[in-house]
């Protein structure tokens, strides 16, 4: 870590300080981007759970759905079998699962992602605090 290394940041010339700043900028940007991507994946899995809740336990005669052909064109359809769904488990493989099993699968994914998101959030906050300290340093130097 730069902050506890042998190099005292206050001694660095402004140009190098700028380089350190750029590096940290990039790092924070990368972390924020990863956070957004993880969040997106989490939303996708939550949506899948929502859809499963929706079709779970539908009785005969209540299996009507509208199938999207395009985002603005739908045709009426009927669900033939609501006891099983096919779940994408990654790398192109799909598995038949009962609806409760599928829900469990997605719930595990969502929890896993939440843990990762929390950890990432912490790192981002940490980095931002470090970064704030450096920025004020650069600002002070510029005034001198």
């Amino acid at each position: 870590m730069a902050s506890d290394g042998p190099i005292n940041l206050a001694d660095l010339p402004l140009q190098q300080l700028q380089a350190v700043k750029n590096q940290m900028d990039e790092e924070i940007q990368h972390l924020t981007q990863s956070y957004a991507q993880l969040k997106q994946a989490q939303v996708k899995f939550s949506d899948s759970i929502e859809s499963l809740n929706n079709i779970d336990g539908r009785k005969d005669g209540k299996k009507n759905v509208l199938i999207p052909l395009t985002s603005s064109l739908y045709v009426p359809g009927t669900l033939a079998d609501v006891s099983k769904v096919i779940v994408d488990i990654g790398t192109g493989y799909m598995i038949d699962k009962s609806i409760p099993d599928a829900k469990d699968f997605y719930k595990t994914k969502v929890t896993f992602l939440r843990e990762n998101l929390d950890g990432l959030q912490e790192t981002i906050t940490q980095r931002e605090n470090q970064y704030k300290g450096k920025r004020s340093l650069a600002w002070l130097r510029r005034r001198n």
Binding site: I86, D88, G92, Y93, M94, I95, D96, K97
Partner: peptide
């Protein structure tokens, strides 16, 4: 007894 599919 679960069926496995592959996306090709």
């Amino acid at each position: 007894d679960a069926t496995v599919y592959k996306l090709i």
